[in-house]
Write a protein that binds this DNA or RNA. Structure first.
Lengths: 337, 337
DNA sequence: TTGTAAGCGTTATCAG
DNA sequence: CTGATAACGCTTACAA
């Protein structure tokens, strides 16, 4: 890699002159500025980022800590983060906690040594279940800005970008009750221990309560793929009165449709199904599932912008932004034949 | 952030003594070593990574450039990369090219200034279509190791981790012909411009040819979601002799199942469907789709290990590893009821 | 056993 | 207009 020193030596001028010339300092003569720049492009000179970082004590890098990236929601958030970060000339270092506390902790600790100027994170499942958040507090106390999205810890003060979990599930439930005239709505949950899961269940319960109906919840306890199908199938088989399903995650809604069809149910006549979904979810089910579409990409963008604001101005550190979800009915994007 | 200088000042010893003590140098007395370490932990000292990087001229960071991360294949590869990198104490900086040449180029250029010790990349769709690869060659010439996976450029010499695209599709096709006794196998493609798409089509064509059958290919030309369904539906409607579908991407196989059911076809009696898939793909279709399962996670791991080898030893730079795929038949993981 | 000093590649201050 | 010098935080000969 070409350095300032090398350029200086080749041109028989000092390092500082070269530096100034490249940075368009007005102290430098037109002549040398051009000579320097020509040689620089010729040798493909690029200022060493590490040296600049050491000098300025800024890494222009954001640490992104995600529970997983194979979940399409987080993948789409990551996409949003990457785009917004690029727009603002930030790099992102990505770490995956794999839903474990120890990896989350390790990543935060390893990166809080000057590697990053701040963190964007969604709390790991284990951390949330165990209510273990000291490691996050430690980072904040060390003056490194942290932004939490989606899975947040309510008693930590920092910027947050969240989904309107309670509200959108409330509305979806009410839609099933009022528009689709459903009375036995089963909530299927594979994420009941997460903060978002709890909020969604509350939204569902409140809506049923407000309409004098009885909540029925099938908790899958974070089951494995194989068991998910079995549990849903068996439940539907033994509880034939169920006329609607509300899945609060991204997968079990589609599984429910498939299992219901297997049981001979006609969708949506016998059973309405609403789930959570992302951009391409509806392409994967037939008939199309109705989805609560979280604006994952937008969540990523907003998170990044908010964190960068916070990095630049320490005082901007306790804002919470709610990104509203959108209920996409099966009909509204259904392909016409 | 605490620095060596601060520790030294507080202990009234020199910076180098502190440094050595922390690095367990044998030159340092038991006594001071302990004193230093105690204070260090007390003040939560962490060596400034940026300074270390400048000193050693190593970033211990890998640049990962992916076309997208919302495609589950790349998400899973990223997961593999992250885990392997963490194991070897490397960070990863992730950039998404969004399938565009200019973003890919920009990312490579921006990171090749000391930010990373090497790159792992899958070439963007646009770069592959336009056969524009000078930017990648430039990096390699500048002595930064590059590893390409999945979508590779054949006339660039570097480490590569690829899938057995030709072979696995050949075998899947042969399976349809020999075991399932299919004669009119439609290949559905939404990625025919990619190197991997071409190889898969060749594998399919060769298998048909070897068995004296005629290839029939439905190219979707990188169509949007809405059109994918329509095109497949219409094709199946007007070509009723089709008795098997081979999808060479991760989505259109499931769409094909749904469209075939819509047309009243019974699967797998009337129509066998094989697609590409990842870990959870089969959970999303009913009946379960047979999939060619690419070991995406393993691809990520192998890529990382190979790149790190190359970083440590410059001479290890022209190996190609083929990660075999696995044909997962619908029956083999089918849930039993 | 401890300390001094140089250097990684930049930028910034100050002097010439 | 140009250059010498110091500094960012760390490591490491080399001296003491």
């Amino acid at each position: 890699m070409t350095t300032l020193k090398e350029l200086a030596a080749l041109l028989n001028i000092s390092v500082s002159t070269v530096s100034k010339a490249l940075n368009d300092s007005h102290e430098i003569s037109e002549n040398t500025r051009i000579r320097v720049k020509e040689l620089a492009t010729k040798l493909n000179y690029k200022p060493n980022r590490i040296a600049q970082q050491l000098k300025t004590n800024k890494s222009k890098t954001i640490g992104v800590i995600l529970p997983t990236v194979t979940n399409p929601f987080f993948a789409e958030v990551l996409h949003g983060i990457e785009m917004a970060a690029t727009d603002s000339d930030y790099d992102i270092i990505v770490c995956l906690s794999n839903e474990t506390l120890h990896k989350e902790k390790r990543s935060l600790e390893l990166l809080s040594n000057g590697s990053v100027d701040g963190f964007i994170m969604a709390v790991a499942r284990e951390s949330q279940v165990k209510k273990e958040t000291d490691h996050i507090n430690a980072i904040i106390k060390s003056k490194l800005p942290v932004l939490m999205f989606d899975r947040v810890v309510s008693d930590i003060e920092c910027n947050k970008v969240i989904v309107d979990d309670f509200q959108c599930v409330y509305e979806a439930t009410e839609y099933l009750i009022l528009k689709e005239k459903r009375k036995n709505i089963l909530l299927v949950s594979n994420i009941e221990e997460l903060s978002v899961g709890k909020l969604r269940i509350e939204g569902y319960s409140k809506a049923l309560e407000d309409h004098n109906l009885k909540p029925v919840i099938l908790k899958l306890d974070n089951a494995k793929d194989e068991d998910v199908e079995n549990k849903i199938y068996n439940y539907l088989k033994s509880n034939t009165s169920i006329d609607a399903i509300l899945s609060i995650d991204h997968v079990t809604g589609i599984v429910a449709i498939n299992m219901a069809k297997k049981l001979g149910k006609v969708i949506p006549k016998d059973l309405s199904v609403v789930g959570f979904g992302y951009e391409h979810t509806q392409l994967l089910s037939s008939p199309k599932i109705s989805i609560i579409h979280q604006k994952a990409h937008k969540i990523g963008e907003m998170s990044t912008m908010l964190l960068i604001d916070n990095i630049k101005d320490e005082s901007l550190r306790s804002k919470t932004i709610v990104v509203p979800s959108e209920l996409k009915l099966s009909g509204s994007t259904q392909t016409k034949f």
